[in-house]
Design a protein around this nucleic acid. Sequence first.
DNA 1: TTTGTTCTTGACCATGCGGTCAAGAAAGTG
DNA 2: CACTTTCTTGACCGCATGGTCAAGAACAAA
Lengths: 192, 192
Amino acid sequence: MGRTREFDVERTLHQCMEVFWEKGFQTTCLDDLTETTGVKKQSLYGAFENKRALFLKALSLYREQSISQLEELASDEAPPMEQLQAVGNLVLGYTNENCKGCLIINTALEFGSSDEEVLREVETMYAETERILSTIIVRGQDQQQITRRHTAPELAAHLTNVIRGSQVLAKSGVSADQSGAVLKTAFSLLAP
Amino acid sequence: MGRTREFDVERTLHQCMEVFWEKGFQTTCLDDLTETTGVKKQSLYGAFENKRALFLKALSLYREQSISQLEELASDEAPPMEQLQAVGNLVLGYTNENCKGCLIINTALEFGSSDEEVLREVETMYAETERILSTIIVRGQDQQQITRRHTAPELAAHLTNVIRGSQVLAKSGVSADQSGAVLKTAFSLLAP
DNA sequence: TTTGTTCTTGACCATGCGGTCAAGAAAGTG
DNA sequence: CACTTTCTTGACCGCATGGTCAAGAACAAA
């Protein structure tokens, strides 16, 4: 009972995510959100509790979206090294598109360790990324294309870190070529 | 002629740098600065033009300081691999101390590519870091401790990227051990 | 000592922002 | 049709913030 909502909550959340992604949490004001979504302030507050809660929902959405893209990519039957390259392309396509970078990383640096829930989200993203990369690396090791001088989880943590770095690099305004080259070097160093 | 300034401009700049480092540009308000420096608003505006100009000065100071620390470290006669480890320790000691991260990287992500001067500062930092790492790597290659499968500049760009990643990691609230382990893996992968 | 210049101080201003209020509109229920 | 409930809308509030003003204080040159 009661009046039915006139806007699509899911769609609105997606749009808000885009805005947060582009501008960050602090810099995004409610007017930005109402303007791009077309949803008035009070309606936004009706669907999501407040700015921070809305942001956390957007953050989760982003993580789920990113991880499922990675998972899809890791589940095809391409050679491991090609999968890694594809991961790199995905990640840099992401970041270079509009130089928005990765929302998780942007958020990690904006919040530092000041917000427990944000922290959890960031750590989950890191862990999931390592997990997926690890499965690719294991196959790479099985096929003698990746060194065994380190364990798969170690290499996965390392690669995740390399990706983090290149996402920052990409957002720092350097060319896509440069960030791509860095990733290529890193992948090449994994050879046995 | 005219009244002499009662506060030490250089010291004040250092203090402001610390505040910006800890809180970022946006989040730092003038009251934060006047409170920690003890210098009143108008006096601050007398010495530095405005908040942004003050920030840019603090950013330059940070970069110069960091680079000269790196340079000092690279100029001793320790074995190259030990120098790299020392670089890692320096960088992580930096970031883990109070989880402030690296001011340059924090700034790069906060500003994106919206501010020309900030961008220049960030790119200079990256370039200088690569230059110094490259000199260490060259010596490592001469002593057969670092692979020659890539050129020194390539490896330097890669290592700079790894460091970027681990600085983000450190600021993301993970333990110092974890960020340290990632660096160790990366260094170890440089072996011939 | 006078004068001109710069620094200091605290009050002041305009604005942007997150969040709330109250009144009206639409829907379900009896 | 009443009645209740939820959504919508626009006005409103309190507060923080970057920046400015004006008056007084300290110093150097004349």
